[in-house]
């Protein structure tokens, strides 16, 4: 069971969400970020995450899209350089991608990583299975008692 999405009737119609390349880059980032020693999370969960990220960006407005896009581009371009492999982040195999991102997280431009990681984590841990794996009761903070 995955959480359904709320549409606010009084809210504006969504704008554009993520571009195809931002979806790919976000997926590469999320796959590395949430992988365990057993490997990356199930692909359906990652698919749900990227769809929800797309929905988030479509509703949160242009400034959010711009900020997230800048973070993502900084990570995609700089992280591979930190492991001596210029090219795209998605092109790195998983262990090397994780290493590149770890180095990025400790670099002077860590804020860009933090920006993208924050929103990915907020969404990811709202998935009931991800929440359960983190020891969180997925119903908490959800609906009124």
């Amino acid at each position: 069971m995955v959480p359904s999405r709320i549409e606010v009737p009084d809210q504006i119609r969504p704008g554009v969400g993520l571009s195809a390349s931002d979806r790919r880059a976000s997926l590469a980032l999320a796959e590395a970020l949430f992988s365990t020693p057993e490997g990356p999370p199930p692909s359906e969960r990652l698919g749900w995450l990227i769809d929800d990220l797309d929905h988030f960006m479509a509703h949160a407005g242009p400034r959010a899209r711009l900020a997230y896009g800048l973070c993502l581009r900084a990570i995609s371009w700089i992280a591979p350089l930190l492991v001596g492999r210029p090219g795209s982040l998605a092109g790195l195999d998983l262990p090397l991608r994780i290493e590149a991102l770890e180095r990025f997280e400790r670099s002077p431009v860590a804020l860009a990583f933090f920006g993208a990681k924050t929103i990915l984590c907020i969404l990811y841990y709202e998935h009931p299975e991800a929440a359960r794996a983190a020891g969180v009761d997925p119903s908490c903070l959800r609906s009124p008692r």
Partner: peptide, 21 residues
């Protein structure tokens, strides 16, 4: 909320997910 807590857990991949536990 737990998700925001998760984002403050340092690390990437196995290190992050083990912290998030």
């Amino acid at each position: 909320p737990p998700g925001v807590l998760g984002s403050t857990m340092p690390g990437v991949g196995p290190e992050h997910t083990s912290n998030a536990r």
